[in-house]
Amino acid sequence: MSGIVQVTQGGPKTLIPVEKVLGGQLVEAREGGRIGVAAAGSVKVLGVALTDALDPEHFPPADTLDTFGRTIVSAVPVPTAVAVAYGGTEVKVTYSAAANFGDKLVATAAGTVGPAGETPDARSIVGICTEPAGVAANATGLIRLA
Rank of each mutant, 00 (worst) to 15 (best):
G3L: 14
I4E: 08
I4P: 00
I4R: 10
Q9W: 09
G11F: 00
P12F: 11
K13H: 02
L15H: 06
L15P: 00
I16H: 05
P17K: 10
E19P: 00
V27G: 07
E28Q: 15
R30E: 08
G32C: 10
G32S: 11
G33V: 12
I35P: 05
G36T: 06
V37M: 09
V37S: 09
S42I: 06
V45P: 03
L46D: 05
L46V: 14
L46H: 03
L46E: 11
G47F: 07
L50H: 09
A53C: 02
L54D: 06
D55Q: 13
D55I: 00
D55K: 12
D55T: 05
H58G: 09
P61F: 02
D63L: 11
T64Q: 12
D66A: 10
D66Q: 14
T67F: 08
F68H: 10
R70L: 10
T71Q: 14
T71D: 13
P77V: 03
V82L: 09
V84G: 04
A85V: 03
Y86P: 01
T89W: 01
E90H: 01
Y95F: 15
A98V: 01
A98I: 00
A99N: 08
N100H: 06
G102C: 03
D103N: 13
V106I: 15
T108H: 04
A109W: 03
T112Q: 11
T112F: 00
P115D: 09
A116M: 00
G117C: 03
G117I: 01
T119C: 00
P120V: 00
I125E: 04
G127T: 09
I128W: 08
I128F: 07
P132D: 06
A133E: 14
A137M: 10
N138Y: 02
G141K: 03
L142A: 12
R144E: 12
R144H: 06
A146D: 08
A146M: 07
